[in-house]
Design a protein around this nucleic acid. Structure first.
Lengths: 209, 209
DNA sequence: CGATTTCTCCCCCGAACGGGGTATGGCCAG
DNA sequence: CTGGCCATACCCCGTTCGGGGGAGAAATCG
């Protein structure tokens, strides 16, 4: 027989976690190699457990599931992560997908469908419901059409940030635009505030992909 | 009864076009308001026909379906376009989605499913098969995090750079990876040398665009 | 086996960055 | 005309970054 798919869980609700763990462990072709209650535990223990698929609650105490996906994928690039949630939290779900999640399921998904989705994601699929599919495609439209993610930036701010994205340091940007170094810094401060980021790299990636 | 959904076709195969047109026209709740053989005809006649949903072959003589979507959406921003194709042409499909297509179906889709998909897209959905869903999500990963031109980077270097691209500062990356700050710095120095860049932002943009 | 690569850690130091202020002039809308 | 937004410019201060060294352990390659 083919080896079982190694599955791990990250779910703070103890009852649901145990329930899922036992169900997966009992299912033929599936093995439960981990069941964590929070993101910190997951990051600490899952690299050693080497799961192939991780089911992760999108709402976790402490570090969010989204943040956890990003960090987990940084350490285990091959792992496939399927987010679990009780609600259709659009914004969070898109962030999770951007951070490396491969699929999205509702917690109320019937167990049989859950197993099918695990197999699907293991085979390179992307299980998600139609609602999420729509969000994803809409997001695609935004990226495809010229308007970037943030139109609240002034033309000058965007101009400065574009040069930042090309790797120039502030001094070079100042010379390039014929303005003072301090002014460049001021524009960037405004960018950070508007984009809710703390570094030039984060701002550049957010606006210019 | 609710008004019929106004559907138009763009399909160069005359036989398939007529077949689909008659099927849609005959279906209760659907109306076929146009059936064009090429992109030029579609752009000329569809604005007057005012369809709500357009089924468009992705391979057309002359102007491609992808290009046609972009131009059609420019004139009819509200129209929903579902691409039809016989093959899984990944690259083309993603371009179509970026240009404003809302869904993607195989030509061999059963007629009943076709009607259901038209309704789905009319209601704001995004009909697509699981294969396309996977492509879309993978593309998402690339935008969020996934390497491109970094064959010379080691796995660790790439791992560090991915976190850099997410806006983390070295100290946070060190904690996240469970290594020393100095080691993170060392990996980044190697990245800069290999990528021929001088700043973290430039490196991040170069590898993760 | 030795050589190379990879990952890890440490030092110094100057430049660059980010956050906190403050301020002036131009322009436009209410 | 007054308030708000924008672009410009400057200060201080602590943190972060990038380049320059050096070095050891493990894995991999030839």
């Amino acid at each position: 027989m083919t080896p079982s798919i190694r599955v791990a869980l990250v779910e703070d609700n103890a009852r649901l976690r145990e329930q899922l763990a036992q169900f997966i462990a009992a299912a033929p072709g599936f093995a439960c190699v981990g069941a964590c209650a929070d993101a910190a535990t997951a990051l600490a223990t899952l690299p050693a457990a080497a799961p192939e698929v991780v089911l992760m609650d999108i709402r976790l105490p402490g570090m969010s599931g989204v943040e956890c996906v990003a960090r987990l994928k940084a350490r285990l690039p091959e792992v496939k992560v399927v987010m679990l949630t009780a609600y259709d939290d659009s914004e969070t779900i898109l962030q999770a997908l951007e951070n490396g999640a491969s699929g999205y399921l509702l917690k109320r998904t019937p167990p049989a469908d859950l197993l099918r989705s695990i197999q699907e994601v293991q085979n390179g699929g992307a299980p998600m419901n139609s609602h999420i599919a729509r969000l994803v495609v809409q997001s695609f439209h935004r990226r495809g059409s010229s308007p970037r993610s943030c139109e609240n930036l002034t033309t000058r701010e965007e101009e400065v940030l574009r040069l930042v994205a090309q790797g120039f340091i502030n001094k070079e940007i100042a010379e390039s635009l014929g303005i003072s170094l301090e002014t460049v810094r001021q524009h960037l401060k405004n960018c950070y505030a508007k984009l809710h980021v703390r570094t030039r790299t984060e701002a550049a990636m957010k606006v210019f992909r």
